[in-house]
Structures are given as C-alpha cells and as structure tokens.
Design a protein around this nucleic acid. Structure first.
Lengths: 234, 234
DNA sequence: GGGAAAGCAAGAGCACTGCTCTCTTATTTG
DNA sequence: CAAATAAGAGAGCAGTGCTCTTGCTTTCCC
C-alpha cells in the first residue's frame, strides 16, 4: 500500500518495526505494566530520546501493540472459521465451527496471556482506545456473526426470541453489525460475545485456580451452550 | 477479635487504617497503576520510608486493597440476597433473587470501576494472589449458590444435564463448593459465574462503546438467561 | 550543484517512582 | 531505671517517562 521512497523512509520503517518487535517481546515476557521505553531502546542500542522520534509517547507504542494483538486474535478466529467444516451445511457443522472459533480464541489467549490482558484486561487509566483500534477489535465478533449468517442461509438458524424491551436495540444491532440476520440474533450474539471472554478471562486471570480442573471440557461445554443461545442448535 | 493493648498498638492500627483509606481514595481516583506509595505518604504528612513500617511493599498494600474490594462486592451480593423476595418460594422468586444479585454486583462495579479492575482485570505481573484473598473472593459465588440451594429446597430447581465428560468434574465441584445440590449444577454455576463477569467487564472496560446502547436491558436479559442455564426456570 | 529545510541521534536534565539504609527519638518491657 | 524495641526522618540508589538543546545527515528546491 505504501511505497517506500527514499533510503530514509526505508530506514524509518525498519526501525519502527524493530521497536515494535522488541516491545512485543518484552510485553510477552513481563507484561504491559513493566514495558519500559528505555529498556526497549537500550536493547536496540539506541538512546531513549531517539525512540520518541518513532512513537511520541509510551501510550502510542501500547496502542500499536494493542492493534497488533487485536489483529492476531482476529486472524486466529478467521483462520478457524476458514478451516472449519463446511460439509453438508447441517446445523451440527455450524455449531462445530462456532465452537472451533471460540476454542481458537481461547488457545491464542492462553499462548499470549500478556497480549490478551492488554486488550481485554483493565484499561490503562486515562487511556481511551482511539478509533483506529475499533476495526481490528471487531474481527472475532465478525467471525462469529459469519457462522450465524451461513447457518441462516442454510436455513438451520433458530433465532432466539428477543426480550420485549430489547426489540429496538436488537434491530439496531442487527442493522449495524449483522445485516440480514433475523431479529433476536443481535442481542444474543453480543451477550454471547461478552460471555465468551468472561470464560477466557476467568481462566487466564487465575479465577479458576483451585476451583476448576477440567478446563478444556468446561470451555467446550460452555461454548456449545452459547451456540445454542444464539440459535445454533444441534 | 484483637484487643489493642497499649497506646502504641492503638496508634499503629489507626495509622494503618489511614494509609489504607488514603490509598483506596487514590485508587478510586486514578487507578491501581498510578497508585504511588510516596503520594499516599505525602498526603498523610509522613515521609515515604515511614510507610514501609506498615506495608513492607507496594504489593502488600495492593493485596490489602484487593481483599477489601472482594469483601465490598461480596457484601453487596449478600445484601442483595438478603433483601431479595423470599415470598412464596416459587421459581420466579428465585430467578428474581439471582438477577438481583447480578444487578447489584454490576452496580457496584460501575460505581467502583478501578476497584473492580483491581480484582477482575489483568493481574499485576509477577503478582500471585495469596491464599488470604481466596475467602473474600468466593463470597459472590457463594451468594449465587445460596439461591440455588433455596430453590432446590423449595423443589423448583431443574438441574441442567451435565455433559458426559464433565460428570466427574461436576461431582467434585458440587462436593467441594455446593454440597447438597443436584448433579449438573456444579459446572453450570461455574460457567454462569464466569460469564456474568464477562458481561460486566465488557461494559466496564469499554468494549460495548459504540456498540451496545441499552445496557441495563441487555444485562437483565442475559442474567435472566443465565438463571435458566443453572436450573432456575420461570 | 549548492543552500535551505527537515529528520534524526545523542546527551543532559527534570520530576517522579519503589525501596534501602542509617540515624535519632519515643515507647514499651524486664 | 536500663535495655530492648518500634517508629519517624532523611539521604541515597537505580530506575522511569518525557523534554530540550546540540550537532550531523539526508532530502528538497531553486
């Protein structure tokens, strides 16, 4: 998309990438709180003030890492969607794809705990996510919606009944994020989306320690249940 | 429980409380990341090194605040349980109490976002919650279990069918945390517990921004659904 | 091509942090 | 009353984000 013109811009792109790589490495190792600009610069053999030519503040570096993390987990979800069974178009296939997406997201989170915490843990105080993060942030949700759309086209989607006082909200959600899907799916998928991350966060942030043992099984069971809730029945 | 013997011990208790109060105030205002021992000491008119006589490290202060936060949200849940309808013992009453507990927890979280983030956001790196936090941490879950127990005693609990590969885990969970409840409720309540916090976290951490508008309605709808999932039907 | 403009690295410096150490003073205990 | 103990005060260390000034190099434009 962007053609690199001179040697200077090429160098700039390379240094920027190197900074992000090193920052991601330190993030994965020690977490966002301990991510220090000075340490990144030191590791790269540059002085700390030089780093500010590339990222005007620590928050800007974090924002770049947040976008990368959203993209990474989004890509995981999309690849799970692509690789899933597209067999006879039966309801079971769609449930399987839904569960597969959830499982892939969970696996990514367990493999990249600090990056997951960066995007779904406590937001940094005084930090409001800029608009540039909203696109990548939606990719997982869009993958889930995609499963519903396929099921709907195959005629096996049984849309849940929308609560009476949520009909308007549901219509707005469907119009804006999942056009074409039947009423009731809007609020259902938003709720399922949030609850999916509740399951992952509790496991990742240690809330299941000394409580839940069979975590794989529990997660598979719960996400299958969520599939039912959004209208994908076996 | 502890009798304060001399003037010195009385002073120590007072200073410890003052430190915790001031720390809680700053936590509520600026968040855990920006909570600084020096600022707390400054505000209290003492020098920073003196504070280390009361809390050996910043993590120990945070641990104290974590326990307080768990107790606060646990107390909110328990008061919602106590104040809820105990009327005719019908299924609707139990659903109402379940939903009321969830709503009270959510209200507490919205009123104390930084304290909520402290206990349910990203764990501080290299920080493992000590055993002393596990007791207070369980109070919300115990309140939810309490509703199930009452419903069971009233004979209106319809336990969900446990997944085949989770029967053992379910029995273990029931035995350890909810003795007397029928099979199936163990995994169901753990899943519902995690999903409840997914709903709250998504709202609180801004994931619903520019997406969900009718948040009260969505939350009430979703938690009612969770009640059904654990065997409380209307 | 040569001069002006812009981009970049380096270093010093500010205000802040958690934490340690020593020294002095006040309190409790034997 | 004397010894032991606890508390406060201050200096200091290593680290942080960020700013500013000083040179140097690359790019742009006439």
């Amino acid at each position: 998309m962007t053609t690199i013109r001179g040697a200077r811009e090429r160098a700039r792109a390379e240094v920027t990438a190197a900074i992000k790589d090193e920052a991601r490495r330190r993030l994965a190792k020690e977490g966002a709180v301990k991510l220090s600009l000075r340490a990144v610069a030191r590791e790269l053999g540059m002085v700390s003030s030089a780093l500010y030519r590339y990222f005007p503040s620590r928050d800007d570096l974090l924002t770049a890492l947040i976008i990368d993390a959203f993209d990474a987990v989004g890509e995981a979800a999309e690849s799970a969607l692509a690789e899933g069974p597209s067999g006879d178009g039966g309801a079971a296939d769609h449930v399987a794809r839904w569960v597969a997406i959830c499982a892939r997201v969970r696996a990514w989170a367990l493999a990249h705990p600090h990056e997951y915490a960066l995007i779904h843990g406590s937001p940094v105080p005084d930090y409001t996510a800029p608009m540039s993060t909203t696109g990548p942030a939606a990719r997982v949700a869009l993958s889930l919606i995609s499963v519903l759309r396929d099921a709907h086209e195959d005629g096996v989607l049984i849309p849940p009944a929308p609560a009476a006082n949520l009909r308007e909200e549901d219509r707005r959600l469907v119009d804006e994020f999942a056009p074409g899907l039947p009423p009731g799916t809007g609020v259902a998928i938003v709720a399922a989306w949030a609850q999916l991350y509740g399951l992952i966060s509790f496991e990742l942030f240690g809330q299941f320690n000394r409580v839940v043992e069979a975590r794989d099984g529990l997660f598979a069971h719960a996400t299958t249940h969520l599939a039912h809730d959004v209208g994908l029945s076996t």
